[in-house]
Design a protein around this nucleic acid. Structure first.
Lengths: 349, 349
DNA sequence: ATGAAAGCGCTAACAA
DNA sequence: TTGTTAGCGCTTTCAT
């Protein structure tokens, strides 16, 4: 490996001068600089980041902890984050926790030993707070993305799950749906809680009853399995007047499982049942927009998350906590249809 | 920051003993080990990777250079690669070149200065070979994924583009299509060349003419723009007997643009025109399998790529070049249909 | 404008 | 079994 000593020897200067050249320090004679630069080119010298880190106490590396980069929502966050990081001269270490808190701990160990300068994380659950404390102890800034943890102090960037749910459910109600089921994510994740809150409050505001048997949860880790089908099956087999006419799937993955289940049960969307969900279902949407969704600006979220993080890392204006909650875009498409309400609402004639 | 010196002081041993404990060295008295471990726990010590790298000359970090992680094909490669890397105790630095060779060079600089122990790369074009040489000069192993470069010596993992094209086109021909257009990727990428070769040879083997005006290329960087539409428009407006009855889109992104264009031109797939492509169009495929595709095992490719890389990095059996070409799975679905050939093939009665 | 010395956190090599 | 010394590649500090 070529070092500044090799360059120094070749250029007939001291290692310190080489260091000055590669750091664009002032007060260097042009001729000296040229000599050094030529030697660098000829030997193909590239500074050793590890040695620099050791002195500067910064690695110019950021940690990105997401649950699954092959989920389009997260891969967009990753893209937005990576682009923003590189633009500011930082590298990105990626990881996939698969919603598994043990994997998450291992990745956090990894990030800690890599001495990342900051971390952007979508926590697997509220329990992650303890792990985040570990970063705090090492004075490593942490920004939360997509998911909030109560008691967390620091910046975060979320989609507005409550508002998105409100609008999605409102849309269903406006189209005559009074029997709306919610298939939610696990309640130890903030987005799921907020979506449920939006769902319940919207029903109540519209004088619609909230049925416990309409609400179920799926652990994200089991979506691939038959959990969605079991739920959809149960919902559909209930007595005709209790059968939901619409399903609110908490995210795109759940929506897909629901679609599959509905189909396997011989029913059609939206003819027999309407479906809405969070997050865009790509890339179909580009040529055949089907799902009625609350689309979150994932790329933007990643970008803002890194910007916040960088400001903490570079200790610019260390303003107080920044809480950004981005509104989702509601797209009304073909997975929902107007129906004739089977029952009138309270107060309706 | 806590160092081995802090631990040493607290545990009343020398820094070297601490080093031995954290490295699980033999010949340490149990009691000493315990003392040290307690101090480590209490102070929350985590070894500094940079310092270790400086001595060991390895960073336990791998570089992953892909074109765009928000493309499902590549995000699956990334997942497979990341999982495999972590399992072997390595970290992964990610990057997105966007098919841009300048960005690619910057990322390669980054990887070089990060002193990654190895690189898994899907090169933007054949020109990347020079850049790969830079890794070679620094004795950093490189494994190619998805795309091959002529003249490259080393391991690679590809999908079988030639074979996939053969089967896709064969399928179209079997269904009466004699007028098949190819909308390809740029010919400085190996997959595009191989797909074209498969297309042409299959036509020839079936005594079908190869028309130059049926073959076009799209730069991956412009897919979002109207390039596909312009091509589809031209194809469709040609004289009736020259109008293709099927389009072979080189990948899923192109296929989506084609679908969009076909729709905007008021036509339907597969009624008016059949469409086939490479790579699965997810996640629709899970509930509404539509596209007839040659699906490549992306996750597997990433995993194998990292395995090969690791063997080079850890200099196990440094066997000669390993060339893995994985066959795609052909899925016949609803985007293609049987038609009555408008003209008989040469030799047919 | 340039150089020498010291040290970042760790470990290899040797010594005790 | 444990400790001492030196040095990985670089930069900070202080000279010159």
């Amino acid at each position: 490996m070529v070092t500044i000593y090799d360059i120094a020897k070749k250029a007939n200067v001291s290692p310190m001068t080489v260091s000055r050249v590669i750091n664009n320090a002032p007060n260097i004679r042009n001729k000296t600089r040229e000599k050094v630069e030529i030697a660098i080119k000829e030997l193909g010298y590239i500074p050793n980041s590890a040695a620099r880190s050791l002195i500067s106490n910064q690695t110019k590396t950021l940690g990105l902890i997401l649950t699954d980069i092959s989920n389009p929502f997260f891969s967009k966050i990753a893209r937005g984050a990576e682009d923003a990081a590189v633009q500011m001269g930082y590298r990105v270490l990626m990881s996939n926790t698969d919603e598994d808190s043990e994997k998450e701990i291992n990745y956090i160990d990894m990030m800690l030993s890599a001495r990342v300068d900051g971390v952007l994380i979508a926590p697997t659950s509220d329990k992650t707070l303890e792990q985040i404390e570990r970063f705090k102890r090492h004075h490593i800034p942490v920004v939360l993305i997509d998911r909030l943890i109560e008691g967390f102090t620091g910046d975060y960037v979320l989609g507005d799950s409550y508002e998105g749910s409100r609008k999605l459910v409102e849309h269903l109600i406006d189209n005559g749906h009074h029997n709306i089921a919610l298939i939610n994510g696990p309640s130890n994740v903030s987005t799921a809680r907020e979506r449920k809150r939006g769902y319940i409050e919207t029903l109540k505001l519209n004088d619609l009853p909230v049925y416990e048997h309409y609400i179920s949860e799926i652990d994200y880790r089991n979506i691939e399995e038959d959990s969605a089908k079991i739920i959809v099956d149960r919902l559909i087999r209930s007595e005709p007047e209790k059968r939901p006419t619409a399903i609110f799937a908490a995210n795109n993955f759940i929506a897909i499982s629901v679609m599959k289940a509905v189909k396997e049960l011989g029913l059609q969307v939206p003819k027999d049942i309407s479906v809405v969900c969070f997050d865009e279902v790509e890339p179909v949407v580009y040529f055949d927009p089907f799902f009625t969704v609350a689309a979150q600006p994932a790329n933007e979220m990643g970008k803002i998350g890194i910007q916040f993080l960088m400001e903490r890392v570079e200790q610019k204006q260390v303003i107080s906590q920044r809480k950004v909650v981005l509104p989702p875009d509601i797209h009304i498409r073909k997975s929902t249809r107007k129906i004739n309400s089977r029952f009138s609402r309270k107060g309706e004639t």
